[in-house]
């Protein structure tokens, strides 16, 4: 089976596993079992009637807002553990909203790339929208005001399944729907705009990309500069310019389709490197350190 098909299958299976409480979809009530103690690795609203697990971003804000010490140890530990092992791989393999964006981009339309400068906005969203406003406002501010995943997965089903809630629809919900529509249009014309510009969970995982145990290496000496890796990358990263170690790399492994085998996935060695070998482009410019070299 092709790697891309395995990835798509993994995305579908994880979406079903996160949202496996099917009775909730016709009763309109959310799951109240012990699985809600566990956060899911991807972005999936816990207010969704079918959600079995908690959303790590929602849970993070709840702990910051209402926790005993306002320090989210449980969620920070959970995110750090996954990040230390796989980096941002969850975004590529196990996020329902990532799956939605991948499918939406397949719709035929004019395509535009996401400007690099606005991609830095995700740090502002994380620091202010998720951490500071939760602390100051004492509420899950990001979920309430911004999260399009929550509007799609929780807002719509809950309103559709509970008629008495129709009168609760106010300006805020309409603004949130508008925000979701904006992202839905954007994800048709651009590759993964939510992940690149907005997602606070992906931003948290991205801090671990450079040090995670599972990592990607690029051998510039094998590269024929055919550009296949750039064309297939859902984050529009250039492998030749250190894309495999970028904070935006979601480890979808599509760049491993390289016919020359220049990109490899490796388990980082536990033996410390005592030397560094620099790989060079034909022009002599240093490209990327090889992390598996040891004496």
């Amino acid at each position: 089976m092709k790697l891309q098909r395995i990835q798509r299958l993994s995305q579908i299976i994880s979406t079903v596993l996160y949202n496996g409480y099917f009775p909730g979809l016709w009763m309109g009530v959310i799951y109240q079992g012990v699985l809600k103690y566990i956060p899911c690795p991807g972005l999936n609203c816990y207010s969704c009637p079918a959600a079995l697990l908690s959303c790590p971003i929602g849970a993070l804000q709840l702990t910051i807002a209402y926790g005993k010490f306002h320090i989210p140890l449980y969620i920070a530990g959970f995110v750090s553990f996954i990040g230390a092992i796989v980096g941002r791989m969850v975004c590529g393999w196990a996020c329902p909203f990532g799956l939605l964006q991948d499918i939406a981009y397949k719709i035929r339309s004019p395509k535009i790339s996401v400007p690099h400068r606005i991609q830095q906005m995700r740090y502002i969203i994380l620091i202010f929208g998720v951490i500071l406003f939760a602390l100051i406002k004492q509420e899950p501010w990001f979920c309430k005001m911004l999260c399009p995943a929550g509007t799609l997965e929780a807002g719509f089903p809950i309103i559709a399944l509970n008629a008495y809630l129709h009168e609760q629809i106010g300006v805020l919900f309409i603004i949130k729907v508008g925000f979701l529509v904006l992202f839905c249009i954007w994800m048709v014309v651009s590759k993964r705009p939510f992940c690149r510009v907005f997602c606070p969970l992906g931003t948290l995982y991205s801090f671990f990309n450079r040090i995670s145990l599972i990592t990607l290496t690029f051998d510039a000496s094998k590269c024929s500069r055919c550009g296949l890796c750039f064309k297939t990358c859902p984050m529009e990263l250039s492998v030749q310019n250190g894309g495999t170690l970028s904070t935006q790399c979601i480890r979808c492994l599509r760049c491993m389709r390289c016919p020359e085998g220049a990109v490899r996935i490796v388990w980082r060695s536990t033996v410390p490197c005592t030397t560094q070998r620099r790989l060079h482009s034909p022009s002599g410019e240093a490209i990327q350190r090889c992390v598996t070299v040891k004496n």
Binding site: K36, G58, E139
Partner: peptide, 14 residues
Amino acid sequence: IFSYAIVVCLNCIG
């Protein structure tokens, strides 16, 4: 987290 997550938090979803 569990005790908040099991309540349909209408405020949380706008």
